[in-house]
């Protein structure tokens, strides 16, 4: 059968390529590349952002050889546990559910409140009407449990567009991500209502079986907190915000 021959051929190639020289172990860092200012693709087509600069610094301190990999948000955890990369730095809040499946380092960005954004001039009632959120985010489940009507869009871009064109009264998302957008809107969009605290700080995700790697990054994060360089980095990327580490 040609089919079995083909499968055998594929298997053979798969088994013989790049024979084991596992000496220099490169740490593959997973990120999404679509969540400015945490991580995004810059105009040169390279990953950039707070987490990229931080990750590179952590690798330098931990004396690791690191490389960045982008992955779709929806499958970012399954691909970590199946070993396609070794860490996640993607603006991921430390939550109890995620912690059951993967391990986190201690946070490298403090818990960021979520905020509502509506068209300028809207009152607080915009937060209880139709609220847009990105599918499968903690904000989406928060709105679903509240009295407001949740409407879920595939991307962050779509949620903002929904507010602009009147499909939704407001959008709920991370404050830091929304701030950029509100600033750039030229007064069309504005924060509305009270912030809500959902989710914990942002940490680096690693496999539960990868305690050694977690330890190295943990130490590097602690060192950066102690010498104030983490605060400086946050201030640089988040409009002078004082994280107070």
């Amino acid at each position: 059968m040609t089919f079995t021959k083909l499968m055998a051929g594929i298997a053979l190639v798969a088994l013989t390529t790049t024979s084991a020289i596992a000496g220099s172990h490169t740490v593959r860092m997973g990120t999404e590349g679509a969540y400015a200012p945490y991580n995004f693709i810059n105009d040169n087509g390279e990953v950039d952002g707070y987490e990229i600069e931080l990750g590179n610094e952590l690798c330098k301190r931990a004396e690791l050889d690191c490389t960045w990999v982008t992955n779709d948000w929806d499958s970012i955890i399954p691909n970590l546990v199946s070993g396609n990369y070794d860490t996640i730095m993607a603006g991921m809040s430390i939550t109890a559910e995620r912690d059951e499946v993967i391990d986190f380092t201690s946070e490298y960005f403090p818990a960021d409140p979520s905020s509502y954004v509506a068209l300028a001039g809207a009152g607080a009632e915009a937060t209880t009407g139709t609220v847009a959120a990105q599918t499968a985010t903690i904000q989406a489940s928060y709105v679903a449990s509240s009295d407001a009507t949740v409407v879920e869009y595939a991307t962050m871009e779509d949620t903002i567009a929904a507010v602009r064109n009147g499909e939704a009264d407001s959008v709920l998302a991370d404050h830091a991500a929304l701030k950029d957008i509100v600033d750039a809107s030229g007064g069309v969009l504005a924060f509305v209502g009270d912030d809500v605290a959902i989710g914990g700080g942002v940490g680096m995700g690693v496999r539960e079986s990868d305690g050694e790697l977690r330890g190295k990054f943990e130490a590097a994060i602690a060192a950066m907190k102690a010498d104030g360089s983490l605060n400086a980095l946050i201030a640089k990327w988040f409009d002078g915000r004082d994280a107070g580490y």
Binding site: T17, T18, A20, G23, S24, H25, T26, V27
Partner: peptide
């Protein structure tokens, strides 16, 4: 899986 079995190797 062991490091040598990774496809492709992480290095």
């Amino acid at each position: 899986v062991c490091a040598a079995a990774k496809m492709p190797l992480s290095s």
